[in-house]
């Protein structure tokens, strides 16, 4: 299994560590050539405006969209969720827009409002997942075909649609690898198709 991690800006090394601990090979993606032969792509946490602009400036937004259309799994965490959203409240920033969701940025407040909490995640069993939220967004609205996997105080923080997953929290900052395993399972299906 060979999974790409978009390495334009943000916490890409942490995702690589989580993936490697599960036996995956990882590739840092900064240019379009690096998208070749990957079974899935993670868009990490960071600044969504920075990541969006660099994606356009270095012409990798379109190749990612093309691969996503072919079924390549894409998982966005925090900034990555925003980049995946079709609509972003009060923003015209560059994005991939692959998921039928509306994201609200900095939705829980500024850094002093950042928090960690126990999440019940659909499909991960009864054991709660310790989730870290940093200046996090949430999903304000979901369209058809989007499955909600977790909420905090009624706000959607984890969702899935076709070959896409988006989380408002940072599974790469904790040692619990269950969320990464969930994504790797999608990637396996795509890998076998390829």
């Amino acid at each position: 299994m060979r999974i790409g991690v978009l390495a334009l800006q943000g916490a890409f090394i942490e995702h690589e560590k989580s993936l490697r601990s599960l036996g995956c090979e990882t590739v840092q993606v900064r240019k379009r050539e690096q998208l070749e032969n990957i079974d899935g792509l993670i868009i990490p946490g960071g600044e969504s405006t920075t990541i969006g602009k660099l994606m356009n400036d270095f012409d990798i937004a379109d190749p990612i969209k093309a691969l996503a259309e072919q079924g390549m799994p894409v998982f966005g965490t925090c900034a990555g969720l925003i980049v995946l959203a079709r609509d972003i409240v009060n923003s015209t920033q560059p994005r991939l827009g692959l998921m039928n969701i509306t994201a609200r940025r900095n939705a829980f407040g500024r850094q002093v409002d950042s928090f960690e909490t126990d999440l019940q995640i659909e499909g991960l069993g009864p054991e709660p997942f310790r989730a870290v939220f940093i200046r996090a967004p949430y999903i304000e609205e979901v369209g058809d075909g989007v499955e909600v996997l977790a909420t905090v105080d009624g706000k959607i923080v984890f969702a899935r649609e076709k070959n896409f997953m988006a989380a408002a929290f940072h599974p790469e900052l904790t040692d619990d690898t269950r969320v990464h395993r969930l994504f790797i399972n999608f990637c396996k299906t795509f890998h076998n198709l390829r």
């Binding site: 800006q9 916490a11 090394i13 960071g46 409002d113 928090f115 960690e116 909490t117 940093i134 940072h170």
Partner: peptide
């Protein structure tokens, strides 16, 4: 239980700034 201002949350924001200016 939700906890704010933890070491993980403080250090975490810096992790998100990495590779940036």
């Amino acid at each position: 239980m939700a906890e704010q201002g933890t070491w993980k949350v403080k250090k975490g924001l810096a992790e998100m700034l990495k590779g940036g200016v």
